[in-house]
């Protein structure tokens, strides 16, 4: 199988969490001889080639971050330039987000099924998982700890050609956190997380408070 992979993140490849996820995913994907080509929506110079590849491939995988409950505006802009295929092309998606609970991604996932239909492609399912916000803030082993599970999902996709298996569904993790986890995480957000954000901000050269109001 040969797969066209589109990284639908508007963030440049170097800092793209979706790209790091795809790095691990494709490692698993290629183990059994599956090949792929990857393009970046964030680089408009690739759009013509990407469009051509879309028409020439019958296995398409779009990986994307959730942007305001649906797909990012830039990815939408690219997709608007495509004509429906209606030739048996199969399309699958990897939907990832910062928010951790599965429920946060369901509205986006629902759209992807509609999108497959609008593009005249057969919907092969969506691999849904959140809690990926911090990928860009880590390197090496720490980053691998977050992204490595996607390798197994790459193997799974190369075997099944879809994301419909129980393992893929389980990959999402909890739909919502149980009350005691919410209590603990909520407390952490008020304390250690605030300190961590302040530290990242400082490293980025931020001189204002995180909750600064520039326009009030």
């Amino acid at each position: 199988m040969h797969v066209l992979i589109i990284n639908g993140s508007p963030r440049i490849k170097k800092f793209s969490n979706t790209d790091k996820i795809l790095g691990k995913f494709t490692k698993g994907l290629c183990e059994n001889g599956t090949t792929f080509e990857q393009y970046e929506v964030s680089d408009k110079e690739q759009w013509d080639k990407m469009r051509e590849a879309y028409y020439n491939n019958d296995n398409v995988l779009i990986a994307l971050p959730l942007y305001v409950e649906c797909i990012p505006g830039l990815l939408l802009e690219f997709l608007e330039t495509l004509k429906p295929k209606n030739d048996g092309t199969k399309i699958a998606f990897i939907l990832q987000s910062g928010f951790a609970e599965g429920i946060q991604l369901r509205c986006g996932e629902a759209y992807l099924e509609i999108l497959a239909r609008k593009l005249g492609c057969e919907y092969m399912g969506t691999l849904v998982k959140g809690d990926n916000f911090s990928i860009r803030f880590f390197e090496g082993e720490q980053q691998d700890r977050i992204t490595e599970p996607y390798t197994e999902m790459g193997r799974e996709y190369s075997k099944q050609g879809n994301f419909r298996s129980e393992d893929c569904k389980k990959f999402t993790g909890p739909e919502v956190f149980p009350a005691y986890v919410r209590f603990i995480v909520g407390l952490m957000q008020k304390t250690v997380a605030k300190k961590m954000f302040a530290k990242v901000a400082q490293n980025w050269g931020c001189t204002k408070a995180i909750d600064y109001k520039p326009y009030s």
Binding site: Y67, V68, C70, I71, P72, G73, L74, L76, E77, L79, E80, Y111, I114, L115, R117, K118, L119, R182, V185, G186, Q189, K190, A193, K194, F197, A201, I210, D211
Partner: peptide, 27 residues
Amino acid sequence: TALGFIDHKGKNIFDRILPIATMYLKF
């Protein structure tokens, strides 16, 4: 509209609201 949804120009208005939120999280 496009592809059954608002088009990218409409969506961009929503995608760019992020500055009205802070990095802080709560339930």
